[in-house]
Amino acid sequence: MFKKLCQKAFSKSLWVYHVNVGACNGCDIEVIDVLTPYYDAERFGIKLVASPRHADVLLVCGPVTRQVVPAVKRLYDAVPDPKLVIAIGSCAVGGGIWFDSYNIVGGVDAILPVDYHIPGCPPRPEAILHGIAVALGLAEKQVAPVHLKQLPDRPESVSIKTPV
């Protein structure tokens, strides 16, 4: 219900604060790409703001280094409710190639409640636009989990769902 409310409230103006929590800058550059006239995220009302206190959305890039954890939590508290957190890039979504490094928390959702994930390394600007469209309810998400099992007496594998 909260998400539906957000979709309604945010459908005209998403003000975005972009934060890098240890990303290599690849995702940041794609985020800047999305704001250029060619991709033009501003036609969805998206605007980059300079202070978290003006923002509705936190765009988080990076696998979250240990040093940045307290700062990110303070940043999250500084954003007024209701707020969305969008994780951009494989690092922010699942830790990327750093997922078990000693100085990395491994994914933004280990410390913040993340509402939308945009995987990609880096995600194409179109992928970010698609993520925005999914968040605004303009497009359907296109990924689903796959669980398949091969059986010795059958040519085709069958779908299973095992407890993980």
Partner: peptide, 15 residues
């Protein structure tokens, strides 16, 4: 490339 979802940890799992 349109892989965005609201719970990627489940949706991107292939077993």
């Amino acid at each position: 490339f349109e892989l965005s979802s609201d719970k990627a940890r489940e949706d991107m799992e292939v077993e």
